[in-house]
Amino acid sequence: MTVPQPHPHPEHGKNGHDDRDRNHDHNHKQVITAGNERRIRFVFFFTAGYALIQAIGGWLSGSLALIADSGHMISDAAALLLALVAYRIARKPADSTRTYGFHRVRVLAALANGVTLLLLVVWIILEAIGRMHTPTEILAGPMLIVAVIGLVINLVGAWVLWSGNKEDGNLRGALLHIIGDLLGSVGAVAAAVGIMFTGWTILDPILSVLVALLIIRSAWVLVKDSVHVLLQVVPRGMDTRVVENGLTQLPEIEEAGHFHAWILADETTIATVHVSPARGVDPLSLPPLVSSWLRERYAIDHVTVQIDPPGQLEHEHR
């Protein structure tokens, strides 16, 4: 969940919030992309249907790579279903007790996706270690057929999700799951071909472990980014002291402090800050000035500016 790039801003009002905020009635409503929801629904049915086929194929052929990938796809189907539910909940409007709406539900869904991936990786590695110590017979032919079908399905699913809005953390989580499935299918195909030509059944658990290791980094990044949003960590690339010092460089501002910024969900950044006017400056002119400055340099969407008497911030910092 990176800090979005700066973008042009409209005219600002006198209260420090721009016209776009007023049009949204200050309810922080975000647009839920219908295209993203359709993409996830499509991939969900594909993933859930093939997971069942792959589980049967893995059991009949004795392949850990197929069984692991099937378990991966089953967890992905559950995660995709959770993402669809999250879209429905996030569409609910804000109310008097949940003034920011329900968009953090999407962050929770993304966190659940990442945690599920990490747990799956642990299971794959433990199962692979057991297979290395006690090799089992594997039918390479059926394994290869099922793995190739899975590879094609995952390629289609990845393309469908990749063409969506990549700023949507929920969609990004679903895409990471499908990429993990894709890597699992590649590993299963490679293992089947290798076993078919060499008879080395140990290739199956070895490649399963390699695929699991490839999934770890993406899953960890997803978990970390989601936790940062839930903990209201300052957006990546932003230093609060640098922002406050930059505000004090404006000739209209004498002091700046108590700057706080956090990500609401995905691409919306919110901030609050205290400023004191320089001598002879109209205090009412500062909110639109500060709001414009923060939007241009840090792409902050919604800014609340409090005007303090000159000297008050300096006194509080002593």
Rank of each mutant, 00 (worst) to 15 (best):
M1N: 09
V3G: 14
V3E: 15
P10W: 03
H17E: 13
D18C: 14
N23M: 13
H24F: 13
R39Q: 14
L52H: 06
A55R: 02
I56T: 06
W59H: 05
A65Q: 03
I67E: 12
H72I: 05
M73E: 11
I74A: 13
V85I: 15
A86D: 04
R88I: 08
R98A: 08
H103V: 12
A110F: 05
A110T: 08
L119P: 00
V121L: 04
E127Y: 01
A128P: 05
H133K: 11
T134C: 10
I138N: 02
L144W: 04
V146R: 02
A147F: 05
G150V: 01
L151S: 03
N154K: 14
V156G: 06
V160Y: 09
V160L: 09
W162M: 11
G164R: 04
N165P: 11
G169E: 03
G169I: 02
L171K: 05
L176W: 13
L183S: 12
G187V: 08
V189W: 04
D204C: 00
K224F: 09
L231T: 11
V234Y: 04
W262Q: 10
W262S: 08
L264D: 06
D266Q: 10
T268D: 12
I270R: 06
V273N: 07
P277R: 07
A278Q: 10
L284N: 13
L294S: 05
A299T: 03
D301W: 04
V303D: 04
